[in-house]
Design a protein around this nucleic acid. Sequence first.
DNA 1: CATCCACACCTTTTT
DNA 2: GGTGTGGATG
Length: 783
Amino acid sequence: MTSAPDRKMSISERAMAAAQRPGEAFAGTAGDDAPYLEGLNEEQRAAVLATEGPVLMLAGAGTGKTRALTTRLAHLLNTGRAQPWQILAVTFTNKAAREMKERIEALVGAHVEGMKWLGTFHSIGAQILRRHAELVGLKSSFTILDADDQTRLAKQVIEAADLDVKRWTGRGLAFVIDGWKNRGLTPEKVPENEAWHFADGRGISLYKAYQARLTTLNAADFGDLLVHNLTIFQNHPDVLEEYQRRFKYMLVDEYQDTNVAQYLWLRLLAQKHKNICCVGDDDQSIYGWRGAEVENILRFEKDFPGATVIRLERNYRSTPSILGAASGLIASNADRLGKTLWTELEEGEKVKVRGVWDGEEEARLIGDDIEAEQMKGRSLSDMAVLVRASFQMRAFEERFNTLGLGYKVVGGPRFYEREESRDALAYLRLIRSPDDDLAFDRIVNKPKRGLGDKALQTLHKIARANDMPLMAASRLALEGDDLAKAARRSLLNFVDTIDRWARDAKDMAPADLAELVLEESGYIEMWKNSKSPQAGGKLDNLKELIQAVSEFDTLEAYLDHVALVSELSESSADGQVWLMTLHAAKGLEFPVVFLPGWEEEIFPSKRSLDENGNAALEEERRLAYVGITRAEESCRISFAANRQVYGRWQAAIPSRFIDELPEEHVEVVSEPGLYGNAASDLASHSAFEGMKLKDDAYYDNPGWRRARAAASSRRAAEPPLIEGRGSTVSVSAPGKSKYKKGQRVFHQKFGYGKISSVEGQKLTVDFEHSGPKKVIDTFVEAA
DNA sequence: CATCCACACCTTTTT
DNA sequence: GGTGTGGATG
């Protein structure tokens, strides 16, 4: 059980925490009746007490997973089974790591400080790599590259290989390399036949070149943090053994999201003590696109014979309606371990499904709902709007702004991805690691120092000829006479200044250094003189950045933090509605949850389906499951008939996921006639009988009347149910269309077109002006 | 070196 | 629809 970012511990948890005076807890008397075990259910308790040997904890949504998990850690510490630094606890996200830390702290107090090995895979991987960097040809001061740096570097590699940069993008190469790294593959280990994944068979050699560049730059990308670990463990058994011995107990959260590299890493480390506890929920695996392998969790028992499997199925979060809807939906997935969530909570309101005319109306109605809830005394921070993709957020932000509703976007544009942040960081990076060419390139002439293209080209040439970093090449260039006089003076000044800062850095607080650098470099001056309207904001951000640095003791710690965390700490928000993607919402819960945009092509995402077919569809469905199960009391799904994408109007049809919701847990509040006979058919359904037709004055326009007319002319034509599991909601109504392939039709928004295929009531029409689109037949008329 | 314009790409999700 | 990049131009 986890909670919204700003939610406090429950009262019982606080009581437990208070009862647990840190010092006394370590007296060693804690046994099976320790106070912190109170209030756990049988399965949770089993998960805490099964300390020895491999354990797989299958924890459904809202079943008190985090509580079981943190109690387990507290138990290990309290019973003296392990010292804080002998426990490896890995999570997938920084948010999860932070939360776990806080909750353990509440249980065992300051002892959490000793838990040096609690963190994300990447941060722990980085820690280990710093200690043994030289074993893979790096210095321990190596820079961690973010996605942007990675792409630039990949692009440089492609350019150096004389390939067409238009055809083979840096992003593309970075993507392929990432895929290999996710599977734990160094260039040597990539199967030959996969060279074709990029640039007509040159994939592997480009990967090699890319790695060589990284070594020269003394840098590691995200994937390297783990792959280098694997290389070190495999080539240096003594190092591996050191860690195997150290980690007496291991704990892995969100195991369903681990990729192959992470899996190998865990397996190597667990070999000695085998006390590994993996927690996960196969139904919440939503990171397949990033290399996560659900198989890892599905085959745990094979990997660790004799594993104890514990299922947490009692849900403390949601009402039976919400659970029922979610369970019914996820039942359509074939590839799952399967579990049955149950709850003792009261029935509560049904999951509401609402169809609306367009995205604007959707945002307006959700805004209204939020205000209505607020009137009833509900706090804004108890409500969340969860979207599939971030571009969907804009409609809501605009609406909330007009209403004056406070909202908080989680995971929006990232602070450290902004231009000024990256520039400032580049200065700091170059000071710490002079080999960091990406940083050098970024700031050598920013602000302008008269080191233009000409000078830079010369430097790059020298660097390439001698296979050295740009900083070293600069020194060399200053000895030779390849540079123009002005450039030479300027470069000398630049190099000297960097050197001086590097000396200063040794005995200076990092925040002071940052301030000094930004001032002396003229960087702040540059923005002050800028006429750009954003300059003010940028200066503010720079101040904020310096403020952030001041929370760290060393420059290193700060730079690592930035690379691995990439967000400023979330300030808690009362009086603000949450707005975030479904991915960002995993692990959170809210009394009221809005799930807009449930339309084919958006959710499930077309792009995802195009790339990965059925596997992707199942992942999208799990994402829907995650969304619904975030809700405690009220869950409101909506879809629009029309939506603007890229500024073009698109007809949309309701998501197949809506059809898959079990009818008995759902209440449909679609505007009547919206989907032609679909909605009216629903009205004839037992569950929806007597549904009041709303006054439709609002919809009194020609297009609408046409749609209505078409709808009523075919009322009760076809049964609305998709066959299969008896009672499911059907909104997209696969009835039979009166239109035929090849027929010419007119559509209110798209104009004239010819039908290219008919599938139930869904037509694919080749419109003369807007190209092929899928539309519901009630929206067109014969032309 | 600054500014303009054409164009491509975008709208999946993140360490 | 907006934004960001890269090339051409003054």
